[in-house]
Design a protein around this nucleic acid. Structure first.
Lengths: 177, 177
DNA sequence: AAAATATGTCAACATAGCTGACATAAATTT
DNA sequence: AAATTTATGTCAGCTATGTTGACATATTTT
């Protein structure tokens, strides 16, 4: 009986740890760090009946005012039906406005309202505070190392999306070779 | 008419950017980096009909074999009802086994099976590969800076959870003051 | 005039979280 | 010994956020 179907099987009692050449330290730090990083804005969003989906939309609309629905779908990597729901709520609540595209009148340019800008800032503030605290004892060089690392964790094809946001330097590779 | 009810409002055309003293660079790098970091295992999990929830359970069961249901709930910060579903599937598929607790027979100790260990490794491999590539041109000091940063991003109360995992140094604070 | 594009919308579905209520067995306290 | 607390499981129903597929509309491009 090799028991391929499931049921019970011998328990492995040894812990998975670094020996397998796997960087568990950073894998789990990333998990915990991201979880807490998102928990700050979650508390604020709950007051508005919003979730993380709303946060992401609001963030990018503020970060690149006037982006079209198609562009937004491209950054978020979700379907238009998913976006439709949260976007409608953000428009109805007066956080985002649509403006007909000037060249192509089929396009809807998305802009934050004053209210939307205020909320976006309120959401970013605790995250930024957490980052500042975490970098407190870091040198400028260390900060550069952290930024380079995070950027290198992103799929190369998608790095352009980051560079295309206002105020970001286009692709400095920082590679040493 | 102050239009507190929503409808339309003046669009803000200026982009949200660093001036507000907010660290947008790292906020968005973190978002994109984590998104791509989780996309690697997602592809593998899909083949088994599993999702991220299964991944997290499988990960920690492998990382700390013999942990109880209560301990697992504590790391994952979800409800037992949420856990029940995914755990049942992992047990039925023969990736995880339960063993009655030796001291307290109410407790169920959770262990990976050989199959569960194999899958956990398969999931960790691409993530570790991505990390290795991202650290490729980093010095040991830079890596330390990155680890310290990620750890500092975690809520202090929860840092103990990380330290309690096998092979992790207990709370080196690394602070300079 | 026809085709392609940008967007919206309807309907149905899946996953993974949640709350609340109740059940059971085992351990602990009184 | 009885009562209580604890560890876990389970039923039922709800919500948020994602998915697919099909179809509608206005507009631009060919």
């Amino acid at each position: 009986m090799t028991d391929s179907s499931g049921a019970s099987a011998k328990p492995i009692r040894t812990a998975l740890s670094g020996e397998d050449g796997i960087d568990l330290a950073i894998i789990e730090l990333f998990f915990f760090a991201y979880r807490d990083f998102t928990s700050d804005p979650d508390l604020i969003l709950a007051k508005y009946g919003f979730g993380r989906a709303h946060h992401r939309v609001l963030y990018f609309v503020n970060r690149k005012p006037g982006l079209t629905v198609a562009e937004l779908l491209d950054v978020l990597k979700i379907t238009k039906q998913s976006l439709a729901r949260v976007l409608k709520q953000l428009i109805d609540s007066g956080h985002v406005t649509q403006v007909q595209g000037p060249r192509d009148r089929r396009q809807r340019e998305l802009y934050p309202t004053a209210r939307g800008r205020t909320l976006a800032l309120a959401l970013a503030r605790p995250q930024s505070r957490r980052i500042r605290a975490a970098l407190e004892s870091s040198t400028t060089t260390e900060r550069e190392g952290i930024e380079r690392f995070l950027k290198a964790m992103v799929n190369p094809e998608l790095r352009a999306q980051i560079d295309n946001l206002p105020g970001n330097m286009p692709g400095e590779d920082h590679g040493k070779h």
